[in-house]
């Protein structure tokens, strides 16, 4: 079976600005794949090329086995995809049911409107005007418009930007539910927690390039790499008294970076128990997605020139 999405060496420029540069990734059917990156990293441009909204300069793109850049496929393709845009694109003066029924009419096999209303948690809001809904409810209606055509691929461009924490959770639950029902999801986000909570795999984009790509849990080997052990030096004990060399961080806080955490912790804690001293604030941390992300997009934020590959 062909992958849901397949992107090879994709390139797109706006005049002198390179928006997408040699981007390559695949998304399997039923998978949630995230494009993570700061604003202007090329997430939306990539998504818009896959939707057939923008043309590309170079590279190959296949969506459900067809090229979205070829006009004869577009109508078929747009019947198979659902789109949730960054902007809230709904007429304020229509009711929830009116907009859903209108858009359902565009598709050959739409999802029943009542089912959509139910799915996005707007039960009893069907006859309410869009402008009377809260921000979170409007966003859920927006997602409802994305799934009313019963799509096999859903494009979610920053789905929870501007939502309160409760509304974000409901949106996440909805995306998980759709994924469990077999919908492929390509999402973009600049929220680390969102990507960690939802995506099976992630590509970190920085200045139009993929800086890292892989399963969310093990991106860049962060599940097996170094850990950081930190604690506060006990009173009257100097760095030289410890059984293991440490690096001072600030005041009495010290840290050890190691990939042999089992042995190091054993030696450290045995020593502390023998000496009957406490290791205040002892923590062991593994590199978070955020650390990875910040390291990978450092150039981007510093505004430095891009290093050659």
């Amino acid at each position: 079976m062909v992958p849901a999405l397949s992107v090879r060496h994709l390139e797109k420029s706006y005049g002198p600005l390179t928006a997408v540069d040699d981007v390559t990734f695949d998304v399997e059917r039923g998978e949630i794949f995230a494009l993570l990156g700061p604003n202007g990293a090329g997430k939306t441009t990539t998504i818009e090329i896959l939707e057939g909204f923008l043309t590309r300069d170079r590279g190959e793109v296949m969506v459900l086995g067809v090229d979205p850049g070829e006009a004869p496929h577009l109508r078929w393709l747009r019947n198979q995809i659902g789109v949730v845009l960054q902007e809230l694109a709904v007429e304020p003066f229509f009711t929830v049911r009116q907009v859903l029924e209108r858009n359902a009419g565009f598709y050959s096999h739409p999802r029943p409107v009542d089912e959509v209303i139910e799915l996005v948690g707007l039960t009893h809001k069907g006859d309410v005007k869009v402008k009377k809904l809260s921000g979170g409810q409007q966003r859920r209606l927006d997602i409802g418009l994305g799934i009313v055509g019963n799509p096999s691929i859903l494009f979610l461009d920053e789905p929870t930007t501007g939502l309160d924490p409760a509304a974000r959770r409901t949106t996440w639950d909805l995306v998980r539910l759709l994924s469990a029902q077999g919908t492929t999801v390509l999402m973009s986000s600049h929220y680390m927690d969102e990507v960690e909570a939802l995506a099976h795999r992630v590509a970190v984009l920085s200045r139009g390039r993929i800086a890292a790509q892989g399963p969310t849990a093990s991106l860049g080997g962060r599940d097996t790499g170094e850990v950081t052990i930190r604690f506060t030096l006990p009173t009257d004990i100097g760095v030289d008294d410890l059984p293991i060399p440490v690096t001072p961080v600030v005041d009495d806080l010290v840290e050890i970076r190691t990939s042999d955490e089992l042995n190091i912790l054993h030696r450290l804690t045995s020593w502390a128990l023998e000496r009957r001293v406490a290791l205040a604030g002892l923590v062991v941390t593994r590199e978070t997605l955020e650390d990875m992300y910040l390291a990978l997009t450092r150039d981007d934020r510093a505004g430095a020139t891009r290093s050659s590959p």
Binding site: E51, G52, N79, V83, L88, A89, E91, Y107, G149
Partner: peptide, 10 residues
């Protein structure tokens, strides 16, 4: 964004 949404529909 309404036009874009219409454009991206069938």
């Amino acid at each position: 964004g309404l036009l874009k949404r219409l454009r991206l529909s069938p």
